Amino acid sequence: MSKHDRKLDQAARAAWLYYIAGETQHQIADRLGVSRQVAQRLVAMASEQGLVSVTIAHPVADCMTLAGRLKTRFNLEYCQVVPSSGAGPEGLQQMIAVAGAEVMCQTLKRETPQTIAVGSGRTLRATIEELPLFDRPQHSCVSLIGAIASDGSCTRYDVPLWMAEKTQGRYFILPAPLYADSEQDRALWCNHRIYRTVTEKAAQADVLFVGIGQVAPGCPLNVDGFISDDQVATLEKQQVAAEMLGHFIGEDGQRVSSDLDARLTSVRLTSATSRNVIAFAGGQEKHRAICAVLKGGWISGLVTDEESARFALAEEEQGKTLTRKIC
């Protein structure tokens, strides 16, 4: 890489932190290990060189390399990695959201009718909030997951409705709680005509946009009332690392059976998928979850951050080394 390219690379990092993560120039200087004056010049350079428009046009070289390695290692069709650079959780989520919105736009801007299936979660909602408005009433948005908790309340992260509002298209809600009260109760929900209609539509979706959740005390499923503290403890003992649409995934990437399975109403996902499933997730608390999902081949595309990408690649390499030693 030439000196000029390295300078552009650093300017792009500064632009991500300043325009997307909302960092001050003093904070950027600390993150990048430069003086405040240099940080100021880098932000100005990003604007002068045309790196900043509605999006940041110049990708960071390290991020591009990591994305390429993730695609190759985990057989992904699409991958984008945003800079971490010591950004805080809120800034990092915002960067993933902005990059993720660009990915979503590739589908939403199409003239031909698209069926878009959407999961739930904070990062997914933040991503949809970054979308511009589209005049695409021909598109349909389908919920992959019920948003009703055991007490009858609805989660604030019922994001498919937000997607439908952005596209001005039709919205199909999955009429069920995430976990029914019993196996018999699940049968009642899932045999309803409307439920079957929506899940059939989801099965034919052109693309699925999902989040990746971690399983730990205080995780979103726990905080929002879908699973209890005792259930979290049991899942941790089973070495569950990730959750997608209520499906629990172990550290080895395989589905982990639990007593919740018989009550789960969300749309079925499978490992080693051939479907167009794009996930949006990042941050240290999700490192193990992202790694598990990648190992199992649950997704075909990923938008994440540098540190999460490096963790997944390091874990995969460590696993291969251990396997070679055993053999």
Rank of each mutant, 00 (worst) to 15 (best):
I173R: 12
P220K: 12
F209K: 06
K201L: 15
D181H: 12
E236H: 04
G218C: 14
D185Y: 07
A205S: 07
T234D: 15
A216G: 00
T199M: 12
I194F: 12
N191C: 01
V215T: 10
G211A: 10
F226C: 08
F172L: 13
V215I: 14
Y171A: 10
V159H: 02
R196Y: 04
A180Q: 01
K237S: 15
C219W: 08
V198T: 01
A203T: 03
R156I: 05
R186A: 14
Q168W: 04
T155Y: 06
Q168K: 09
T167I: 15
F226H: 10
I173M: 08
Q238V: 01
L161T: 14
R186C: 10
F209D: 09
D158W: 13
D230L: 09
Q184V: 08
V232I: 12
I212G: 05
T199R: 13
Y157D: 11
I194N: 08
H192Q: 11
D229W: 03
D158T: 10
L188Y: 07
A176W: 04
L235K: 01
G213H: 09
D230T: 07
A203W: 04
P217I: 06
T234P: 03
P175C: 05
A202T: 03
Y171L: 13
A180E: 01
A164P: 00
Y171F: 15
L221D: 06
Q231W: 08
P175V: 02
H192C: 06
D230W: 03
K166Y: 04
I194Y: 14
G169E: 10
V207S: 05
K166E: 02
V198F: 09
Y157F: 12
K237T: 15
C219S: 11
C190A: 10
D224F: 13
N191M: 01
L188R: 11
W189E: 00
S228T: 15
L221V: 07
Q214A: 13
Q168L: 07
R186E: 10
R170P: 00
N191L: 00
A176E: 05
Y179L: 06
N222C: 15
I194Q: 13
L161R: 15
D224K: 08
H192A: 10
Y179F: 14
A187Y: 09
A205G: 02
D230N: 05
R193A: 11
Y157A: 05
P160G: 08
V210T: 13
T199P: 05
L235A: 02
D158E: 12
A176P: 06
G225V: 12
D158F: 14
V232Y: 05
G218D: 09
L221G: 12
A164H: 00
Q204L: 06
G169P: 06
A205N: 01
I212R: 06
V207I: 11
D158V: 07
K166F: 04
P220R: 13
A202I: 08
D230G: 04
A233Q: 12
C219L: 02
D224H: 13
